[in-house]
């Protein structure tokens, strides 16, 4: 499997362990990634708040760069998925709007074509389940995550709104993390926050609300007995992991819960070592996860 790969900004910034663990995991899975190194930020929905046409054109450019490779596109960020899907929905809805957007791109030898070669842009999570296949993934597991209790955390942008995110064709996209955790040998932890908001989008605008959201979800997962969370969204990771000590102050309780990026969780089951997967860079300690895996804790 060969893919046009958009890693997003945050995976090369404050969550560089995500970029590294994706490279490790892709190699183990036999997936070849062609990185779109000329592509730009998706705008995270924020540039659209300033100028919707600008956001649509920036993402049309990324799609056009991916289409030039002739490969399907993969991202590793719920927010990229949501922001890009929003632009793609508008671009795909109307040929005259698409032509208008392509005007500026054509000057750069680029064009976004609706449905060209069956073009898709999928998060690693969707791609694993829908294209790679959970059966094939199960065959690659060399270290089942036995006894590891994992709480899924999706990130809003990859679960809502449903009419934009392909739920007609793939109605189970909001339960893929649970399916994946089970295939990797882990145990799914049910808690209230799995599909709620981490609070990151308002961290600079309403810090207390933002941290209360993050702290509440981490606390709920701890109360439900989770050993760790897993998320396909690096922006959620920033609030749930990087800001966890600050979130603990707002919800006024101790929190110390490891938060893994999706490729890290998959990478562990494929035999990767925690350090190799960048887990030592996390703010919330991942020691407990390492101990669980080392001792093969009781299921």
């Amino acid at each position: 499997m060969k893919l046009a790969y958009w890693p997003g900004c945050v995976s090369r910034g404050f969550t560089s362990e995500l970029h590294g663990s994706m490279a490790f995991t892709a190699e183990k899975l036999g997936i070849e990634l062609v990185e779109l190194d000329r592509a730009n930020c998706c705008g995270a929905g924020i540039i659209a708040e300033h100028n919707q046409e600008l956001a649509d054109t920036l993402n049309a450019r990324t799609f056009a760069l991916a289409q030039q490779t002739g490969l399907a596109m993969m991202n590793i960020c719920s927010t990229c998925q949501g922001a890009q899907s929003e632009c793609q929905q508008r671009l795909d809805a109307d040929s005259s709007y698409r032509a208008h957007i392509n005007e500026v791109l054509s000057g750069q030898g680029l064009a976004y074509e609706k449905g060209k070669d069956g073009f898709t842009n999928k998060n690693f999570l969707w791609l694993l389940v829908e294209d790679y296949g959970l059966d094939q993934l199960a065959e690659k597991v060399v270290r089942p995550l036995s006894g590891l209790r994992v709480g899924p955390f999706y990130g809003c942008y990859i679960v809502r709104p449903k009419d934009r995110l392909g739920y007609d064709e793939f109605p189970d996209r909001d339960v893929y993390l649970e399916k994946l955790i089970e295939v990797l040998g882990g145990e799914v932890v049910e808690y209230d926050g799995a599909r709620k908001c981490c609070g990151f989008p308002v961290i600079t605008m309403n810090r207390e609300t933002s941290l209360r959201q993050a702290g509440t979800h981490v606390g709920d997962a701890l109360d439900a007995g989770a050993d760790c969370l897993v998320t396909p969204c690096p922006l959620c990771h920033l609030n749930l992991d990087m800001q966890q000590p600050e979130a603990a102050k707002v919800v006024n309780r101790d929190l110390d819960l490891a938060v893994l990026h999706l490729p890290q969780l998959v990478g562990l089951a494929l035999g990767g070592e925690p350090k190799q997967l960048g887990m030592s860079k996390h703010i919330a300690s991942t020691k407990w996860v390492e101990e669980r895996l080392a001792t093969g804790a009781p299921a």
Partner: peptide, 22 residues
């Protein structure tokens, strides 16, 4: 290329609403 996109789209600032256009 990104700068050229800015120059172009900041002139129009077109807003496309699927609810209205279908």
């Amino acid at each position: 290329e990104v700068k050229a996109i800015y120059a172009h789209t900041e002139e129009h600032r077109e807003e496309f609403n699927i609810y209205i256009t279908g």
